[in-house]
């Protein structure tokens, strides 16, 4: 293995010169980001900073005005099976006729490809994932009859059965009680310890250093990237939040 190859293998996500605009309004401006493999990273920034947009652009859900994204050194398209995604809560119709197990099974659809139906094995994997997030008892529940925290855990389980190398999660702690929050963090840390890369949109600066190794601070432009302690400085926060920093 040549050094260059191993280098690109150690960078899980690489974003170069990413610029995004909704109509004429720039939402992301010239973002460069390299996330090493095996870190648990938070994307931090004020509301409207473009965090969701960044994730969606990385996942190819939005078309950037310029720039490119690579996953393990290759374009996203060829690598999508290494990527798991937990969308922002509330983006689905909760009254949809489906139960928790069914939702989690959807995480296998990417592996199944066209036309193939989920097998017994896929269902077992889904049950397993539900168990890991502590929701095995709720497998048959219609999703609207779950609490906010339970719904979030179901969506986490759905990403888990994708068996990805990199996970993206958009504000998984919104509307979640303290106990569930700790459970989810525990699962994320386990994933990290298994060598997976986890990237989470987060907006509680208080818990940042407790939960995460790395942070990416941004507000339209990138402000800092690196270990949490290096990123969260007075100066950086001021650059991101202006005068209205949450804790300092």
């Amino acid at each position: 293995m040549t050094p260059i190859e191993s280098d690109s293998q150690d960078i899980a996500v690489s974003v170069k010169d990413l610029t995004m605009a909704y109509r004429e309004k720039p939402v992301l401006w010239d973002i460069d980001m390299e996330v090493p493999r095996g870190v648990l990273m938070a994307i931090v920034g004020p509301n409207g900073a473009g965090k969701t947009t960044l994730i969606k652009a990385i996942l190819g859900l939005l078309k950037p005005a310029a720039g490119k994204v690579e996953i393990f050194g290759k374009p996203f398209e060829s690598q999508r099976y290494y990527v798991g995604y937990v969308p922002q809560c509330g983006s689905v119709d909760w009254d949809f006729p489906t139960n928790a197990l069914d939702v989690v099974t959807m995480g296998r659809y990417g592996h199944l490809g066209w036309f193939k139906r989920p097998s017994k094995m896929d269902r077992d994997l889904a049950l397993d994932a539900l168990d890991r997030v502590g929701m095995a008892d709720f497998a048959d529940r219609q999703i609207s009859q779950l609490s906010g925290g339970q719904q979030q855990r179901v969506f986490l389980a759905r990403a888990l059965v994708q068996d990805a190398m990199i996970y993206f999660m958009d504000e998984p702690f919104v509307g979640v009680d303290a106990v569930t929050e700790k459970t989810i963090v525990g699962i994320l840390k386990t994933l990290r310890d298994q060598g997976k890369t986890v990237i989470v949109v987060h907006h509680d600066l208080q818990t940042l250093s407790e939960y995460f190794d790395w942070a990416f601070l941004m507000n339209v432009r990138q402000i800092a990237l690196g270990p949490v302690s290096e990123v969260i400085t007075q100066e950086n926060l001021k650059a991101a939040y202006g005068g209205r920093s949450a804790i300092f």
Binding site: S91, M106, Y109, G110, P118
Partner: peptide
């Protein structure tokens, strides 16, 4: 296309992220 339609109807963004 049962599986695909189901996923599309339930969660478009996720369906797209799966390719």
């Amino acid at each position: 296309f049962w599986k695909e339609f189901k996923l599309l109807t339930f969660d478009r963004d996720y369906a797209q992220s799966l390719g």
